[in-house]
Each structure stands twice: as C-alpha cells, then as structure tokens.
Design a protein around this nucleic acid. Structure first.
Lengths: 143, 143
DNA sequence: CCGCATCCTCGAGGATACTG
DNA sequence: CAGTATCCTCGAGGATGCGG
C-alpha cells in the first residue's frame, strides 16, 4: 500500500473481489457505498444536486414522499462521505444550501451507466417478470 | 413510444429523469432495479454466477452469512428478472444449478463501473468520514 | 426555516423445524 | 439436497412536537 495513492482504475479482478467478498474492512466500506446507490433517496438527491445548490425545503419539495427526518439523515450521510457540501448561512430565518462536491459529481458517471443499463433493459425485464409471474400462477392453482 | 423498441442507449436527460423521478410506473421499475444492485446479496450472487453454473449449496457456502431463506428468495428475484437461470434436475438427491443469463451477464459492466468508482475513491471517502466524525466529536463534548 | 428528539409501527430477514 | 413454513426479533423509517 503506497502512500499518496492517486485514484487509479483498478483491474476487474479487484472489482470482482470487491463485489463478491462479504467479510473484511474493505468489503464493508464498499458495501456501504453500494448501499448508498441502492438507497431510495440518496441517488435522487445526488442527481438533483448536480444542477446546483438547493435549500433544504426546495429539496423536500422536489422529493415528494420524503420525510424531513429522512431528508436530513440522507443529506448527512452524503455529507459525511464527502459527496455533498452543506453550507449554513447565519441569517434569520436560517438558510442552508446543499450542493454536490467534486467527488459527488464524479459519482454521477457510474450511476448514469447503471441508469442506462436499467433504461435499456427495463422493457426486457418487465417481460421476464410477467412471464415468470404467469408461470407461477399456473403452478399455484387459481387465486 | 414506438413498439418493438430495441435496447438503445438513452440520452443522459432520460437517465437523470429516471434517477430523480419518484413517481410513475417507469420510476418504480427503475428503482426496483437499482435496489437490486444495492441489495446486500444480489450483486454478490450475480458476480459469482458470472463464472459458471453453481448449485444451491455451493452458493450458500460461497456466501458466508446468508440464510437459506434469503438465498432462495434472492435467487428467485434474480430469476424473475431474467438475470439468472435456474435448472432443476430430476435426480435423487435433487440437483439444482444456477447460472447467469445473457442479460445477467450484461449487468456486470455497469456494476463493475460502480465497483471501480468505489474502489478508486474509497480511501478518499474514508478520509472524509473520519474528518466528519472528528468534527462531530468536537461539537458534542467528550463521551 | 431548519432540524433534532421521541415515539411507534411494520416488514425485512434470521433461526429453526419440517418435506419431497 | 433443495427448499418451504413458521415464528420472532430488531431496526429502518414515518409522524409528531419542540427548539434555535
């Protein structure tokens, strides 16, 4: 492990190991990152914050269904990981702005790749699901 | 919306909309796909099944910590989405093999992209986390 | 306006025991 | 061997109310 290690594209073996490994500290960090992507709100917020700084209430409005509790919590997580920067202005009434950090902006690329995959194959997947559900209905008799 | 739409690389606007949209049927499908990636076990299994067919018990051994219940459930999900093929041989004792479908093999690319990102930035992220946690400790007094 | 603390619900998922 | 069925726990996350 060399110090001052710059971000390097790791080889595919390393990635496969990351994906498949369950134990170890590295794996835990990696899983927590993957979890953030799979998280219902994180990716939406990362996506929205690409566009520029937004205030808390704006984000809440832009994300129908999210509770204040979860919005705060999710933003804190993203802030902790260095993906989002929180800026509080000492005004009355208080104003807080969130925006993606440089690191947070780099995350959009792999996420977009995933979104492209999902978008390109969602018709296919829905077809598979329908087929599967139909077959199940055949096994389990009516109802 | 044209019928017989072949999988096409969608533009980035479409993807951003997918990522950020909360409501709508499309969004729900998309979120369920993202959720699969973020799922603790799905990605490991997809990763493992790239290598070839494996039996139920083999997969269970290769995935320490997973319960039979969850292994079955996760494999069923992946099968339903057309990502994994399940083949049961009518033998005694029974033998069931799982392998990635062509569709399932295409998923590895965007996931690898994500794994590369995570791998390349995990040092950075851990540093951010430590910094953040340290700052918190400063606010909340000792203990 | 922004957020934390508290309470409470509810469903994901583990453990165990049983079948084809 | 490859599951299924049942029970049970536990923590994610919504609702509400207060505080700076």
């Amino acid at each position: 492990m060399t110090p001052h290690q710059q971000p390097v594209q790791p080889d595919s073996d390393t990635c496969m190991r990351l994906i498949c490994d369950v134990e170890g500290e590295r794996a835990e960090v990696f899983r927590s990152i993957l979890g953030r992507v799979g998280d219902k709100w994180s990716m939406m917020l990362i996506g929205m914050l690409q566009h520029g700084p937004y205030r808390f209430t704006e984000l809440k409005r832009m994300t129908p269904g999210i509770s204040a509790r979860m919005l705060t919590f999710t933003l804190r997580q993203l802030e902790r990981d260095g993906l989002v920067q929180r800026t509080a202005y000492a005004e009355i009434p208080p104003r807080v702005e969130y925006q993606a950090t440089p690191l947070g902006r780099t995350l959009i690329d792999p996420v977009m790749a995933l979104a492209q995959w999902a978008s390109a194959h969602q018709t296919e997947i829905v077809a598979f699901r329908d087929e599967y559900d139909l077959a199940q209905e055949g096994d389990r008799p009516a109802r």
